[in-house]
């Protein structure tokens, strides 16, 4: 801080010699810069939306709402329907949430209520942070070479066609990827529960389990819901890890072992090869759908989160 103070004085002294008008001009310029930066940031986001909208205009015109309900994706016949990908994305994301929920919930409770300090909680926190830092391409790579053979051997035992890749494999990888995020969201929410409430519970002679079940969970339910929503927001836009293990099959999956395709991975797979404006436009429309869903999910999730924080 010392340095800043000195430079402060320094400027003040110099400032006395300067003309007032030059200061005002600089002031205006500075404000201009700030506003310009803010406007640039806003226009980038707006620009993304507008570009996607323009890019997908052709497909919106051609298929209308049918685009979402049709299950045919046939570039040769110029028929494009996004239903298989919407179902692929929803099923993998929901399954991933289901798989990750007990783990992220448990670790959040454990970290925020049981082990606030100590080497184990340190290790746990460290692991969660490391997991969050691993790039998704590495999850996909690892999934392809380690997880896929494991899933395949299960499929052989269960009598399914042993693809190895498919909805369930993608869901497991996604679950591992969203655990850190979901866990930190859940700890955040649990921390918002007022201390008085918890203490009152313990004072009544309740066990820890009972405090968690009867006080913390009901209190935090809204936050947990928004946490789930935001974790879902993370999962559904994930591209690379899913692309590598989902099987890239443009049909509606029959069961959780079927290969499928997600919205993000069909873009990754076909964007460079889409010949013809309608094909390209349809892929951009899938991008637009992703953008809109992320807008809705994050808006609702953040609103509930903010309300929770204010309530405290």
């Amino acid at each position: 801080m010392n340095q800043t103070e000195i430079s402060c004085k320094d400027y003040r002294l110099r400032n006395l010699d300067e003309q007032g008008s030059s200061t005002t001009r600089k002031e205006t310029l500075f404000r201009f810069f700030l506003i310009a930066a803010a406007i640039i940031s806003v226009s980038i986001v707006m620009g993304i939306f507008v570009s996607l909208l323009f890019g997908s205009w052709k497909s919106i015109n051609e298929f209308g709402l049918n685009f979402i309900w049709s299950s045919t994706w046939n570039p040769a016949a110029k028929q494009f329907g996004a239903l298989p990908f919407i179902i692929g994305t929803l099923s993998t994301s929901f399954l991933a949430l289901l798989i990750s929920a007990p783990f992220s919930f448990a670790s959040a409770i454990y970290l925020s209520l049981y082990l606030k300090n100590g080497w184990f909680s340190g290790l746990l926190k460290f692991s969660v942070e490391l997991l969050a830092g691993i790039p998704s391409i590495i999850y996909g790579f690892w999934g392809l070479f380690v997880l896929v053979p494991i899933v395949r051997s299960f499929e052989i035992k269960l009598g399914f066609i042993p693809y190895g890749v498919g909805v369930v494999t993608a869901s497991i990888i996604l679950a591992i990827m969203i655990i850190p995020f979901a866990s930190s969201m859940a700890s955040e929410v649990i921390k918002l529960v007022p201390q008085d409430l918890k203490e009152a519970g313990f004072a009544m002679g309740a066990t820890r389990f009972e405090v968690i079940k009867n006080i913390i969970l009901p209190y935090a339910s809204g936050g947990i819901f928004s946490g789930i929503l935001l974790a879902f927001g993370r999962a559904f836009g994930e591209t690379m890890a899913v692309t590598m293990v989902i099987g890239n099959s443009n049909i509606i999956p029959k069961n959780i072992f079927s290969p499928a395709n997600s919205m993000a991975s069909v873009i990754a797979n076909e964007f460079t090869e889409a010949r013809g404006n309608l094909y390209l436009s349809s892929l951009i429309e899938i991008g637009l759908l992703l953008f809109i869903i992320s807008f809705i999910v994050n808006a609702i999730g953040n609103r509930i989160m903010k309300k929770m924080t204010v309530k405290k």
């Binding site: 803010a38 707006m46 890019g55 993000a264 873009i267």
Partner: peptide
């Protein structure tokens, strides 16, 4: 008002799937 807009749009931008940003930069 602009700050409020910036705030909600940055939240939105953070949630936009990265592949979508790839599409847009291809177009731009």
């Amino acid at each position: 008002k602009l700050a409020a807009v910036v705030s909600s749009l940055t939240d939105l931008l953070q949630g936009v799937p990265s592949i979508v940003i790839g599409i847009v930069c291809y177009l731009w």
